[in-house]
């Protein structure tokens, strides 16, 4: 089955539901964030949902994923527990890292999210390492690194691509190019707009896709994952997308060109897929309302769970520095 055939009606609806769910969760966080109860730097994913959804829809149990501090979408797309994520944002003991890591260090090891990091590029080589582990175990699992355009400016990006290609490791490198590092535009940081082409320098396939089109992301990722699983080595996918809000927190970015922002909002990944599915008769207004209601109920419950959960006890301060 090739990538086009794999895009079944069920898959499309699942992608839509995943993206809608991320969007509404992020919007709720944006509303609650000013209450100052989520006391950790939180980087919202609004506008970029198609990347995480399209990437993760290709993964199976046992595959591993390494992400960035902007990882809510990745965590949720992989099936990470919403209660544990929300509790983590509130610094609670029931959080996915017991409040120790916060929004920037989300993990869901059972679902495959092995590491996210507050430090740009830091997890890229870890995906190569997980790929190496799968190679040594002779499994057919893959490892995925998701990073931003800023991540490609770090040395480890190049080191990781070289090593993964040298050893033909089962790794997929996914760049979410949202064009901004905090407030600084891509054009002020990189000499050429060619992230995907760097793959060729490291003797692997590199493609550029519309990162606001979940189906396009899905197809590119599917090909890369299949290539990795059959032992043919790594690939690089550049997904061009856009972050609607400020780098960190829930405010808008005052430095953005309003026209640029409007253009991207007009190409909203959630609404784009929604229109397509409605046109294709796969989704009714009633379905959409029902999905929204389900997600909203889940969010209300998760926020309540998080707010009502206990904080870590003082004795947890010194616990867990070292593994037993």
């Amino acid at each position: 089955m090739d990538a086009v055939d794999a895009v079944t009606p069920d898959l499309k609806k699942n992608l839509y539901r995943t993206m809608l769910r991320i969007r509404r969760i992020e919007e709720k966080i944006a509303v609650l964030y000013p209450e100052q109860e989520m006391r950790c730097p939180t980087h919202l994913y609004i506008g970029q949902e198609a990347v995480a959804a399209g990437v993760c829809a290709n993964l199976s149990k046992g595959d591993s994923v390494f992400g960035t501090y902007r990882a809510h979408g990745l965590y949720l797309s992989l099936g990470g527990d919403l209660n544990a994520m929300m509790a983590e944002l509130y610094g609670k003991r029931t959080g996915c890292t017991r409040g120790k890591g916060g929004s920037m260090q989300l993990i869901a090891p059972d679902e495959g999210l092995l590491c996210t990091s507050a430090l740009v590029g830091g997890t890229i080589p870890m995906a190569a390492g997980a790929g190496l582990a799968e190679r040594l175990r002779r499994s057919d699992r893959v490892a995925v690194a998701v990073f931003g355009d800023g991540g490609t400016e770090e040395g480890v990006f190049h080191e990781s691509l070289n090593f993964a290609s040298l050893k033909k490791l089962p790794v997929v490198f996914v760049c979410e190019n949202n064009f901004y590092a905090v407030y600084t535009h891509f054009s002020q940081r990189q000499c050429a707009d060619n992230i995907y082409e760097r793959a060729h320098a490291y003797a692997m396939p590199g493609v550029r896709v519309d990162g606001n089109d979940a189906l396009e992301v899905y197809r590119a990722m599917r090909e890369a994952v299949m290539r990795a699983r059959r032992g043919a080595g790594p690939s690089l996918i550049e997904c061009r997308t856009y972050r609607w809000l400020e780098h960190v927190g829930a405010s808008s970015d005052v430095t953005r060109d309003p026209e640029e922002l409007d253009e991207w909002i007009a190409r909203c990944p959630v609404r784009t897929l929604q229109h397509r599915l409605v046109e294709e008769g796969l989704l009714s207004e009633e379905d959409i309302h029902r999905m929204k209601a389900e997600v909203d109920a889940e969010i209300v419950a998760a926020v309540r769970f998080a707010k009502e959960s206990p904080f870590p006890a003082p004795e947890e301060l010194e616990a867990g520095v070292y593994a037993p």
Partner: peptide
């Protein structure tokens, strides 16, 4: 040679590689 091997001169990246491998059970 799969368990004992030379590496590129990428000390930081290669340290990330062993961290990732460790997180994946090695």
């Amino acid at each position: 040679p799969e368990r004992v091997f030379d590496i590129p001169l990428s000390e930081n990246g290669m340290t990330g590689v062993i961290i990732g491998a460790a997180l994946a059970g090695m």
